[in-house]
Design a protein around this nucleic acid. Structure first.
Lengths: 337, 337
DNA sequence: CTGTTAGCGCATTCAA
DNA sequence: TTGAATGCGCTAACAG
């Protein structure tokens, strides 16, 4: 049933030539006679010859595979990012090994181990919520495996990264709310990982300052992104004497949980409370009351750019020019629904 | 900066023993003296020795990698399936290579080619909408690469498959609607791929028959799952003289598009029109008017079972016992919201 | 233009 | 209990 897989050796034997000639002919090496080349290529096609990748990987010390580590695939956001990565990888004839950290540091490390053992040529990663040190990634560089961080980027020097700036869009979002008359805008922020730049908060402050609206620190609360905690902090917000009329939500997960809970509390969305958010998930278009605006972070682009950067790193032999291409910052955009 | 990666050869040299002894010691081979074994393992640990997977892959003719081909990752349904696959793969120390067909046959074939060249040990696949022949998969078996179909399974003999039966749940869904008084239930079916069993339709017929409710063929319409077509066929349904009071939607995508459009047409959901569906996406819990019920197909389980089946195939040397384990059918469950 | 040879890291067979 | 030798399939340096 299962046929024997042909090798260049057999091609060589059938043609009574040497295996190196076959190898070169198949690679269109200039120093091979046209006649021989044709012969070899014809026979190879007939025999359904296909080079044994594992042999090539072994010989070249390259696997033509990149590892992609994401917090999870359930969030539409990361699924979109994968598309960008896959696209660029495919163009370069690379495969993509995917692993989900599920926002668990230990798991992130384990995935990284598997990938290292698999000798992936490079790694793309959007770090987990728990990741508070990047030692495990730095170790990879020792093995000559470059790492590019994207989207969720640790806030440390000397790394390669691609991320999307949120500062301007955050200001846009708040301006939008202020223009609609809101004066008390709460910010439900995500987990305070020391490793990620906090542009949302910076934008939040700046917008208030610029519009001369005083900051009320009790309007800034924190969730771990779980539904339960989001509901709890939202409830606390609404019990304030000066309760907010609008919410800036860390992302669409938080926004959806907030809106759902607000409805349960019989609040009128867009009347008692308005919500703006980050991520701009396509799925929110199906909601009756989606966030009135959401910051688009172009995950597809981020994935693609990050992958391109990784390939640049793989191509360049000299470590010097690597520093130059290090960091790419994309612009986000406020989408009003 | 980048350290040299140690090999068994170097361990052997430092210890003045042969590489085969080292190899055996690292594998806990019984014929190695305890003393030697300890020495070797100690030094290996100190040197941070790690076997070169690419060499092992080459030597063993195995890559310890399985390929997973899905229509797309955007559907929560498939993301969930991945979790099951990843879980089982990790337990077996296998890696997962993921590819999205984007419901495009050509792309499905291309991905398969890449995976074959990469010499994956086995393939898991949920076929694309367009896939009307499985020649490209059968070809894989020639290379001794087993294929397990799951969820979207072609309706042909002699394959290995894991899928979720929808017949009973479809009947449950219709019984639910009938019990609520509906007598004209439309069925918006998906693309009529000849390759997938049509249990939804069979259940639709049977439920009507059992309840002695006549079938009106004009209530059975077809969408290609695109929003535009779904809207078109729904509109046509609602223009019927005997228009339906309920919809059985092919899946949650169709259900959401239908509900959204119905609202645009000023129809009252759950009054003018009720919807039941398949897939039971978690995200629908955020909707104000989700389908009143949805058939849960346990994608996570399906992925896990399919992967287990694949490993069984990989383990078994004799082709005979492969036939026995061939097909697994799971039960679906109607979840009422 | 083509052939010979070595070697990538490892598991394994054969010999001691 | 250990060592020597072989080969997996391919590329590339070297030799003609």
């Amino acid at each position: 049933m299962s046929e024997k897989i042909p090798t260049i050796k057999e091609i060589a034997q059938k043609l009574n030539i040497s295996i190196s000639t076959v190898s070169r002919a198949l690679h269109d090496h200039p120093s091979i006679g046209l006649r021989t080349k044709m012969q070899v290529q014809k026979l190879a096609a007939e025999m359904n010859y296909e080079p044994n990748q594992t042999a090539i990987q072994f010989k070249q010390g390259k696997t033509f595979t990149i590892g992609l580590i994401l917090p999870n695939l359930m969030e539409e956001y990361f699924s979109l990012a994968i598309n960008g990565v896959e696209q660029v990888a495919l163009e370069n004839n690379y495969n993509v090994l995917i692993g989900q950290s599920h926002d668990d540091l230990e798991r992130e490390q384990k995935i990284l181990d598997t990938m290292r053992r698999h000798r992936v040529d490079g790694v793309l990663v959007s770090i987990s919520k728990q990741t508070n040190s990047i030692g495990h990634f730095e170790q990879l560089e020792k093995y000559n495996i470059p790492v590019v961080f994207f989207d969720r980027v640790p806030n440390v020097p000397h790394i390669h990264s691609v991320w999307c700036s949120l500062y301007d869009s955050t200001i846009d979002a708040l301006e939008l709310l202020f223009k609609k008359g809101h004066r008390r805008v709460a910010y439900i922020q995500g987990p305070l990982s020391l490793n990620i730049k906090n542009e949302r908060l910076e934008g939040y402050y700046e917008a208030h300052k610029h519009n001369k609206i005083p900051i009320n620190e009790s309007l800034i609360v924190t969730t771990d992104l779980s539904k339960a905690v989001t509901e709890k902090v939202f409830e606390k917000l609404m019990l304030l004497k000066d309760k907010p009329t609008a919410i800036l939500a860390f992302n669409d997960t938080v926004a959806l949980d907030t809106i759902q809970y607000a409805k349960k509390m019989k609040l009128k969305i867009n009347k008692d409370i308005s919500v703006v958010s980050y991520a701009n998930w396509p799925i929110t278009s199906y909601l009756d009351y989606p966030p009135i605006a959401s910051v688009e972070q172009f995950p597809n682009d981020q994935g693609a750019r990050a992958t391109e950067l990784l390939f640049k790193l793989l191509d360049s032999k000299s470590p010097e020019d690597l520093v130059a291409v290090g960091n790419i910052v994309l612009k986000s955009k406020l989408i009003v629904h």
